[in-house]
């Protein structure tokens, strides 16, 4: 029988976690509950973060918006603020499972679970998110680009949880795009998932953040591709270059859902298509 600690404030939550770092933080439980009876049996104590008000909700702050870690994907996809400033995050939220999953699954859970296939994670990379982490020592910030450090490993220290994510507004005229390639139209785990954001200055790509999931051990920025097209004019040649570099720098695997060859192929073409879209 698993004992659940159910704190009512962030202070109470980090105190529990400080005293007992073996507590398993949980919120929507959509990743936790599918681990099977054995894994659940081994887990003797969980801490339920759904009752912590500081971790919930979406609010506009100076220069961006902040999304609490236990905010569900349904709340994200419905949020007018998210849809206006970061439509690609709203779009990714619609791709996480079906309606029932979106009602329970949380942004912080997607991050901390740290699957290489997490649909929202490349979006956070492309949007240059900042993670606000809470622990016994208080709050600290981690650039999202430094959050994933290996297969299902994050920069969270024992006893720390994701409190919220800050998304800085993109400058006026910036572009953003998202594409998921799943096994089927809905309720699918990604074979490849790609997000990008950036801006054009004087007809050239001044800035591009390109990120992908399911093509490496963790969600990754495609830095070689970003580097290759910086300063280039958008167009077919630039798009070809981005796709080619992207396919070269990833390390996909064969698994039950797809093959490494296919993932590389689809990534190249999807990146090319998305970079072509910048020109339009």
């Amino acid at each position: 029988m698993i004992a659940a600690v159910r704190p009512r404030s962030l202070d109470e939550a980090v105190r529990h976690l400080g005293e007992d770092p073996a507590l398993v933080p949980t919120a929507g439980c959509t990743d936790l509950m599918v681990r099977g009876p054995e894994a659940l049996h081994r887990m003797d104590r969980v801490i339920d973060l759904l009752g912590v008000p500081e971790l919930r909700g979406i609010r506009e702050v100076e220069g961006g918006i902040e999304i609490g870690s236990t905010t569900s994907f349904s709340e994200i996809r419905r949020s007018a603020a998210v849809r206006a400033a970061f439509p690609i995050l709203a779009e990714a939220a619609t791709m996480v499972g079906g309606w029932q999953i979106q009602n329970r699954a949380t942004l912080g859970g997607n991050m901390a679970n740290a699957s290489p296939a997490g649909d929202s994670l490349p979006v956070l990379l492309a949007l240059d998110a900042v993670v606000v982490v809470a622990g016994a020592q208080g709050l600290r910030e981690i650039p999202y680009a430094d959050f994933h450090i290996g297969y299902r490993r994050t920069a969270l220290r024992p006893g720390e949880i994701v409190a919220r994510v800050r998304l800085p507004y993109l400058p006026a005229g910036a572009f953003q795009a998202f594409r998921k390639v799943g096994t089927r139209e809905a309720q699918a785990i990604s074979k490849v998932v790609v997000a990008l954001a950036g801006r054009i200055e004087e007809g050239r790509i001044a800035e591009l953040r390109l990120a992908a999931g399911s093509v490496a051990a963790m969600p990754v920025r495609l830095r070689a591709a970003e580097e290759a097209v910086r300063g280039q004019a958008p167009g077919p040649e630039t798009a070809d270059l981005a796709g080619r570099e992207a396919a070269r720098e990833v390390t996909p695997i064969d698994d039950v859902r797809s093959t490494a060859d296919y993932r590389r192929f689809a990534l190249e073409r999807v990146v090319r298509r998305m970079v072509m879209g910048i020109a339009g």
Binding site: A239, G243, A260, D261, Y262, F265, R269, R272
Partner: peptide
């Protein structure tokens, strides 16, 4: 691929 090479035969 975009460069005409065969992506399927490229090995990782």
């Amino acid at each position: 691929g975009a460069n005409g090479k065969n992506a399927a035969s490229e090995k990782t």
